[in-house]
């Protein structure tokens, strides 16, 4: 096969796998930012928190990191619910969530990151999953399990979330709170309770994405920064509140970034990806897969 074509195909495949990871990170944000209108810029910081906790637990117990991250999900759910209670009490109730709320999450992000540096040190942490060294070869294309397994788990979790939102009563209430919270009150559902629940789910996904992240690459306390732009870009490109659009955007984003990295060098990949976002914001702000608002 033509070496350039092989490089391109490899770039596309590993981009798709990377996209699975991004989808996990963005799905949580798609709930909080897209549906609840809570601009949680600390989301990637919580992802890194999850990644480092998984790394520490893995070092202590030797359990599978992805299993650990699923076990951690309830703790993250509780953390998210608590954070939402604070946010609601101080900002949403007062009605000035715009600047103050953004600044609040910015401060929370800072506290999480610096707290991590002070607690576990600034060095990189990693885990060695049992399957990490295996690579499947399909002809010219390499499929490393180190990336395939996290991507599969992430997509499965998103699928479960989509089923939950589509078919359960609570899930449909979450979708409804995104559209009209007063109408929800008329149905005798407490919108605050629903939003608390949904924000918890969003953070649980941050923890899960962190577990997937630390399998793929070593993580340090500041790793979240690169992800802030990425996950917001994906959520906006995906059309804010649509999970399907979010997954598609994540896969596209992963491919663009990875192909750029393999042809022009990895130091250029962030600029191209964010250039995409600026363009989307300028030309089609409702997202590539969103409906006109």
């Amino acid at each position: 096969m033509d070496p350039d074509l092989a490089l391109l195909l490899n770039g596309v495949v590993s981009g798709l796998l990377l996209g699975g990871l991004y989808a996990a990170a963005a799905a949580g944000l798609s709930i909080s930012f897209g549906m609840l209108d809570v601009v949680n810029i600390a989301h990637p910081a919580f992802m890194v928190l999850g990644a480092l906790i998984v790394a520490l637990l893995w070092a202590a117990t030797g359990l599978d990191p992805l299993l650990l991250s699923i076990l951690l999900a309830p703790a993250f759910w509780a953390l998210g619910a608590g954070l939402y209670v604070i946010y609601h009490h101080f900002f949403e109730r007062r009605g000035d969530e715009a600047i103050q709320g953004l600044a609040f999450f910015f401060g929370v992000m800072f506290i999480v990151e610096v707290g991590l540096v002070l607690a576990v040190g600034p060095e990189q942490h990693f885990v060695d999953a049992a399957y990490a060294a295996t690579t499947w070869r399909l002809g010219e294309i390499d499929v490393p399990l180190r990336m395939l397994v996290p991507a599969t788990v992430a997509l499965a979790a998103i699928g479960a979330l989509a089923l939950f939102l589509r078919h359960s009563f609570t899930g449909r209430a979450i979708a409804a709170v995104a559209q009209d919270r007063d109408a929800l009150r008329l149905l005798a559902i407490d919108p605050i309770r629903i939003k608390r629940l949904a924000f918890g789910i969003s953070l649980a996904f941050a923890g899960l994405a962190g577990g997937a992240l630390v399998v793929v690459q070593p993580v340090d306390a500041w790793s979240g920064h690169v992800f802030i732009g990425r996950v917001f870009a994906i959520v906006i490109m995906g059309g804010l509140s649509s999970l399907g659009g979010c997954v598609l955007a994540a896969l596209a984003f992963g491919v663009v970034e990875n192909v750029t990295a393999s042809f022009f060098g990895p130091s250029w990949s962030p600029a191209v990806a964010f250039g995409c976002l600026l363009l989307v914001l300028a030309v089609r702000p409702q997202g590539l897969f969103g409906r006109m608002a």
Binding site: F33, I41, A98, L102, F232, P270, A271, L278, L281, P285
Partner: peptide, 23 residues
């Protein structure tokens, strides 16, 4: 690029601007 949109879009675009410039 972004001020025709209201809300948080400007804030997010400025976050991205920082990454693009740094690159």
């Amino acid at each position: 690029l972004t001020l025709r949109l209201r809300g948080a879009y400007f804030a997010i675009a400025t976050l991205c601007l920082s990454v693009v410039l740094q690159t």
